[in-house]
Computed example of a mutant assay.
Amino acid sequence: MPALCWRHHTLIQALLSRGPLKQQQFYSIFSDVTGKNPGTHQQLFNEYLLKINKELSYVQFELRACRNQYDGNVYYGVVNNVADEQSKLGTRYTVPQIAFYKGVIEAIVQDATAQGTISNFDALNTRLENQVWTGTGSQSQGGPSEVPPAFKNFSLSQKEKTLEELVQDRWLCSTPDGNIRLGVRSFLDLRSWFHSNDIPACEVCNEAGVKVVFFFNIAFPH
């Protein structure tokens, strides 16, 4: 297979260095490096992405698009295709921090109001011991001897710091009214997690249906 040219590498590097980009931003970079507008050269754009993904698949990465259900925008990003969240976040976050993140996103997707948010207070009260799993893959009952000390000793200040970092890294998002919701990186990276946890897909965008009522107010282009 021919090696990727500098144009392919520029597109990949833009997403790796800047994080997920809105479709308009990514289209603009594509136009700058190729001289072609992806809106009028959709086949060329798709061919670029296909070639990039064939190369990235060897290292279990993928250039992927998703729709953010909170703002309706399409984003592009490079994601890790391994199945577990620890591999996705493990280079930056500790095991207790990852357990905290998993507890927060579980609370968000289980939001009874279907708004896909929880309060900052509820996020900080996430119990890490609920994230302890046995060797058989089932969740433990949280017996004292089964909970790692690092989980039991994870303080409120550590949760606050972790929440700030997760928002900064766009795994989570903080709203002006003090609520916490999924960040664009969660929509991009956690498709397998949503699927394995039986989160129903949105019938409009085919992403996990985290915010059920949102799309009734979106005017999609024809």
Results as ranks from 00 to 15, higher is better:
Leu188Lys: 08
Arg67Ala: 08
Thr136Gly: 03
Phe220Lys: 14
Ala83Arg: 14
Pro20Lys: 01
Gln60Pro: 05
Pro176Phe: 07
Thr10Ala: 12
Gly178Pro: 07
Gly116Lys: 03
Asp198Phe: 11
Lys159Ser: 02
Cys66Phe: 00
Glu55Pro: 11
Gln110Met: 06
Gly137Cys: 12
Asp122Tyr: 00
Asn73Glu: 15
Gln158Tyr: 00
Ile180Glu: 06
Ser174Pro: 09
Leu124Phe: 09
Glu47Gln: 08
Cys173Val: 04
Val184Tyr: 04
Leu163Asn: 07
Arg170Asp: 12
Asp84Pro: 04
Asn81Glu: 15
Ser145Thr: 08
Lys161Ile: 08
Leu182His: 02
Phe100Met: 03
Ser196Thr: 13
Pro148Arg: 00
Arg181Val: 01
Asn206Pro: 13
Tyr101Gly: 03
Leu156Met: 06
Val184Gln: 07
Phe187Thr: 13
His195Cys: 06
Ile98Asn: 10
Phe187Pro: 12
Leu15Tyr: 01
Asn197Trp: 01
Glu106Pro: 07
Thr94Phe: 01
Leu16Gly: 04
Gly137Thr: 10
Phe216Ala: 10
Ser28Pro: 08
Asn73Arg: 15
Glu203Cys: 09
Leu89Met: 11
Gly178Gln: 04
Ser155Phe: 04
Asp71Met: 08
Glu164His: 05
Lys51Glu: 10
Tyr93Leu: 00
Glu85Cys: 06
Ser192Cys: 07
Gln25Lys: 09
Val167Leu: 11
Val33Gln: 06
Phe45Trp: 09
Arg92Glu: 15
Cys66Ser: 08
Glu55Gly: 14
His9Ile: 09
Phe216Arg: 15
Leu124Thr: 07
Asp111Ala: 10
Phe194Asn: 12
Asn130Tyr: 13
Gly35Gln: 10
Asn217Lys: 05
Cys173Phe: 06
Trp171Cys: 13
Val212Gln: 14
Ser57Pro: 03
Arg64Pro: 03
Ile105Tyr: 08
Leu182Met: 05
Lys152Ser: 09
Val210His: 04
Tyr48Arg: 14
Gly142Tyr: 02
Arg185Asp: 07
Leu172Phe: 13
Leu166Glu: 01
Ala123Tyr: 07
Ala112Ile: 08
Gly77Leu: 08
Asn120Val: 02
Val78Tyr: 02
Glu160Lys: 03
Tyr75Glu: 10
Ala99Phe: 06
Lys159Trp: 00
Arg7Glu: 14
Gln110Thr: 03
Tyr70Met: 11
His41Gln: 10
Gly137Gln: 13
Asn125Glu: 14
Glu62Thr: 00
Trp133Ser: 09
Ser28Thr: 05
Ile12His: 03
Asn81Gly: 05
Ser174Ile: 11
Asn197His: 12
Arg127Gly: 01
Ile118Gln: 09
Pro148Gly: 00
Gly19Asn: 03
Arg18Glu: 04
Asp111Met: 12
Glu55Val: 14
Arg191Ala: 06
Lys88Glu: 00
